[in-house]
Amino acid sequence: MEHTSILERLLRAAALTVIVVFFMFPIVWILLMSVQTNATILSDPPTLAFTPTLSNYTALITGQLDTQAGSLNIEFMQNLGNSAILSVCSVVVALLLGVPAAYAFARHRFRGSEDIAFTLLSFRFAPPLLVVLPLSLYFQDIGLADTYIGLIWVYQLICLPLILWIVRGYFEDISPDIEHAYRISGHSWLATFRKIALPLAGPGIAAAGLLAFIFAWNNFVFALVLASADKQPVTVGALAFVTASGIQYGQIAAAIVLAIAPTLALAIYAQRYLVEGLSLGAVKG
């Protein structure tokens, strides 16, 4: 039995190592590419013996990209700021609208509620190209084309359905008896929602907000069609590295590292909220 237990531990450790290497290899490879020149990256055969350089990150920060055809101005840091503005504002608006709506769908059953909720969810399933052309025409008519407000509004097609359905499930896991007891003591439904429901569903709301932020940050099509260069996020701004003189692989790798750093940091920080959210069902009964 002892030999079997040791063998099981070894097999589990080996399997875990293979899984970690499989998922971490692309990230490690991108990190290595970000500190290499194009000549080193394109060397045949590939080599791990190279002199690291920060020139790729310097080019992104300063906005000056040196190519074989000459110097090229890029606005990557502005694109990074645009991504932060669009993603943060979109998630905040979606939380302000989606959390009360999720609570209403979870606590107040009315005729057609499921149909309305599913209709909102269906917006998440629709391909962006299905709505981006009519939206671009409407935005030009009402003056929202190439504006932050217009993009934040469109991003609700990404964030709002996601937050609505995830947070609704967390509210449904909270026993309504707790809220009823608070209401009996003389408090209004608004006070009950603010002081009881929101704190209990806090981990779920945080997890939904994190997922919505990641989806908004990674969006490409909406910003490509509805925004000009000064409003475009990093997902669209990365196209600047495909130049007439070739593809700047080192700068692309450095841009990927800088682009994924915020979402990766948020994901690591919010792990505890995801774990806490799993225990919400314990309050039932």
Rank of each mutant, 00 (worst) to 15 (best):
P176L: 12
G209V: 02
R183K: 11
A191F: 05
T4G: 08
T37G: 14
R12P: 03
I27P: 05
L95D: 05
S185F: 01
Y155I: 02
Y170R: 09
A49C: 02
A126N: 00
Q271W: 09
R109C: 05
P45R: 10
G81F: 07
L11F: 13
L7P: 00
I6A: 09
N56W: 08
F123M: 14
T263W: 13
L274H: 09
P128K: 14
L133Y: 10
S122N: 06
A126K: 09
P26M: 12
G246V: 12
V131H: 01
A49F: 14
P176H: 07
S188G: 12
G202I: 02
F110L: 09
S5T: 07
I252T: 11
V236E: 00
A206V: 15
T17A: 15
T62G: 01
G204Y: 01
F222Q: 11
I142M: 06
N73H: 13
L137A: 08
I166E: 05
F241T: 03
T67D: 02
W189E: 11
F23S: 05
V275Y: 01
L48D: 00
F123C: 04
S5D: 13
E276I: 08
N73S: 14
G237M: 07
V283Q: 10
G169I: 15
A14I: 11
Q68M: 13
S71E: 09
L16F: 10
N56V: 03
W165R: 13
Y269C: 04
P26H: 13
A145P: 05
I74D: 04
L65N: 07
Y170P: 01
T47N: 09
E2I: 14
V28T: 00
G277V: 09
L211T: 09
R9C: 01
L211I: 14
I178K: 06
S34F: 10
T119L: 15
A84R: 08
T37F: 11
W153G: 04
N219G: 04
I61D: 11
Q140D: 03
A191R: 15
V20H: 00
F118K: 12
V92P: 04
A255T: 10
L16H: 10
A94L: 08
A223E: 04
Y148T: 04
Q36A: 00
Q78N: 12
P161V: 13
T17C: 15
L7A: 03
R168L: 02
Y273D: 07
L96C: 10
L86V: 14
T243E: 11
A104K: 05
A117G: 03
A84C: 06
A282F: 11
E2H: 10
L144A: 07
